[in-house]
């Protein structure tokens, strides 16, 4: 995708080759520079303060940005944490291919926590062939945290995604059951992130807290970050269900009365294939996606995620259960 980039000129990277005239004025960094700097800072603090951190990777754009930021924070060294994919088993094949390719390039360790395993072991009920495995991810995640004794999960969640997430700290604590208690969040002053934990507790760290969907796309363009191809407009067989366009897959088949059509679509988020909708879009380049994102009238999750539509506190409820 990198050949389609129109890279913005006014950024720090383009200002480094030679001293700028009047550099005192040029001391300003732009919003992407500052968001990047903060995210790198958070990753380094978590790596330094926590005993066994892990980076959560879904194959989506936010976690692709996280991997990129981890490179900026820790190269030329190795990442001071492994990468964990909570695999629902209902994946877009392009995303799994992307995951494997990126981890191969990076030479970092990948751990896969499988929802199918959790079902097979009887940890969670099987929602059936057509059921969403979104909520079951919490169990697979918490099991992996217990098994590997992780004490910090670095995730790509953003506060602009949801009104419960809008309330969450950058370092967000979980009790020994993995639960978030929104009424007992630690004060988080300045950039003094305290990662100290009691036995059994763990924390979630969200370096992209203050990034919006648009910031992510602008950063992806600026940094030429590789993404799975399903983010770009392509032709795909879809069925319209509950106002969303669901891709036909082994887990999504037309039901009686539903009509399958070939549409030009792209995905705004990547999750379990049974509850992640595509949007009709002709945006095939990053600049087209940025323009479309800026003009969009529907939120990222509202457009594409059936999992957030259950109630006005769907996300809060899932987070209380240990969700990302």
């Amino acid at each position: 995708m990198t050949d389609t980039l129109d890279r913005p000129a006014n950024r720090l990277a383009d200002r480094v080759a030679e001293p700028l005239p009047g550099w005192r004025r040029a001391a300003g960094a732009d919003h992407l520079d500052l968001l990047e700097a903060h995210a790198i800072f958070v990753m380094r603090e978590v790596a330094a303060e926590c005993r066994a951190p892990v980076l959560l990777f879904s194959g989506g754009k936010d976690s692709a940005v996280l991997l990129h930021l981890a490179e900026k924070a820790f190269r030329p060294g190795r990442f001071p944490f492994p990468v964990l994919h909570v695999d629902t088993g209902h994946n877009f094949p392009e995303v799994v291919a992307f995951r494997d390719r990126r981890l191969e390039e990076l030479g970092e360790r990948l751990i896969v926590a499988s929802v199918q395993d959790a079902i097979d072991r009887g940890r969670v009920p099987d929602p059936g062939r057509w059921g969403s495995r979104n909520r079951l991810q919490s169990v697979a995640l918490l099991d992996a945290i217990g098994e590997h004794r992780f004490d910090a999960c670095i995730g790509g969640a953003r506060r602009d995604e949801d009104k419960a997430r809008a309330k969450e700290r950058v370092l967000s604590f979980r009790d020994d059951q993995g639960r978030w208690d929104p009424k007992r969040q630690r004060p988080e002053l300045w950039q003094l992130y305290s990662g100290q934990l009691l036995p059994g507790e763990h924390l979630r760290a969200f370096p992209l807290s203050d990034w919006t969907e648009l910031d992510v796309w602008q950063y992806v363009a600026r940094e030429a970050i590789d993404l799975p191809p399903i983010y770009f407009a392509h032709s795909r067989e879809v069925v319209e269900r509950d106002g969303m366009l669901l891709a036909i897959s082994p887990w999504v088949q037309p039901q009686p009365g539903e009509h399958v059509s070939e549409r030009t679509v792209r995905f705004r988020t990547v999750g379990d294939a049974t509850c992640t909708g595509a949007v009709a879009s002709e945006a095939a380049t990053l600049q087209q996606i940025i323009a479309e994102t800026a003009a969009s009238r529907i939120s990222e999750r509202g457009a594409t995620r059936a999992d957030d539509r259950f109630s006005e506190s769907a996300m809060e409820d899932r987070k209380r259960e240990g969700y990302f």
């Binding site: 720090l12 990277a13 480094v16 030679e18 001293p19 700028l20 550099w23 001391a27 300003g28 960094a29 520079d33 500052l34 990047e36 700097a37 903060h38 790198i40 800072f41 380094r44 900026k72 924070a73 190269r75």
Partner: peptide, 12 residues
């Protein structure tokens, strides 16, 4: 891998 000629407050 970017070499900077200067880094103002706020950059990592």
């Amino acid at each position: 891998d970017r070499v900077l000629t200067e880094a103002p407050a706020g950059l990592s």
